[in-house]
Nucleic acid binder design. Structure first.
Length: 286
DNA sequence: CGGCAGGCGGTTA
DNA sequence: TAACCGCCTGCC
């Protein structure tokens, strides 16, 4: 069977490692060639990028999406990958007069904030609390395989959607035991019940009414699942940046939010991702 | 073995 | 409303 590959030339400010490993998503898997395979919007795809001039920082290149028709691209991937946004402009704005941000943006130059499915981000970030990335990924795949509907088979692997709120609302903690969600299992079930009863959340206030969703998780969901680009999630890593590199008291999250509002404004979510990815990798390398 | 990982809910004062 | 504590699980 011939595989459809959709190609977009002259793409700037996009690099798969930065996009898929900056911590915003958990269902994309790195392949040997550096491309990523995953499922979103009921579509399975592989995403590859080739720089025209080697690995030039921020240089333009060719984006190739496999298992994707022109319609898939126009109707879904373009928006999902946030390709219509001018990241060059946004980065220049964030970096103006900010040496820390300049380093962070130089490091994570190819980050794009994905426009993800709301329910998927709710599930993902409830699972993410007090947890590490490999295990978060395992939990999400396990949940999809246990209770999700099949999406299809791609390169020999079957992919599943996450279970819907309706499905999840009807199971018990014991049913979810194989997924090893720990104490988060009951948060998910309870949240599914709330969503079934009250509908999908529409803002941060609604999010806070869910179970297992505190300030940090709600900010992440707002940013990644609701398009709230000004949302500035503060986790331990961002708190470390804000205290270590911006000089704000490590425990004073209120002051950090105020700083973000004042200096990053509606670009707070992008700022947070650049800073988060930067500080995490600084830490990982030593 | 204790400590910790992209916090939260519950309980106290 | 701020401070503390326990929590599933897996890995160091």
């Amino acid at each position: 069977m011939e595989q459809r590959i959709y190609t977009i030339e002259d793409v700037e400010d996009f690099f798969p490692v930065h996009v898929f490993e900056c911590g915003q998503c958990f269902r994309w898997q790195r392949q040997e060639d550096g491309s990523y395979t995953g499922v979103a919007g009921g579509r399975i795809a592989n995403i590859a990028f080739e720089s025209y001039e080697g690995e030039a920082e921020g240089g333009s290149g060719r984006l190739q999406i496999s298992n994707c028709t022109e319609a898939d691209f126009e109707n879904f991937w373009s928006q999902y990958l946030d390709l219509d946004r001018d990241y060059g402009k946004l980065k220049r704005k964030l970096c103006r007069g900010d040496k820390v941000m300049r380093k962070a943006v130089k490091f994570g130059w190819g980050i794009r904030i994905l426009n993800q499915d709301l329910w998927e981000t709710i599930v993902s970030f409830i699972i993410s609390q007090n947890n590490n990335i490999p295990r978060i990924k395992g939990c999400i795949e396990g949940l999809a395989e246990l209770l999700g509907e099949p999406v299809g088979v791609f390169e020999g692997r079957a992919w599943y959607d996450l279970p819907t709120p309706e499905k999840l609302a009807l199971v018990t903690v014991e049913d979810l035991a194989p997924v090893k969600l720990g104490y988060r299992a009951k948060y998910l079930i309870e949240t599914a019940k709330i969503v079934c009863q009250k509908g999908m959340p529409e803002n941060v206030e609604d999010l806070s009414a869910l179970c297992g969703v505190g300030p940090k998780v709600a900010s992440c969901i707002a940013l990644f699942g609701m398009g709230e680009t000004g949302s500035f999630p503060i986790d331990v890593w961002v708190a470390r940046v804000m205290s270590g590199l911006y000089g704000i008291d490590e425990k004073n999250h209120g002051a950090m939010k105020a700083y973000a509002d004042e200096h990053f404004g509606a670009l707070g979510g992008f700022a947070q991702q650049y800073l988060f990815y930067y500080i995490r990798n600084l830490n990982a390398r030593k």
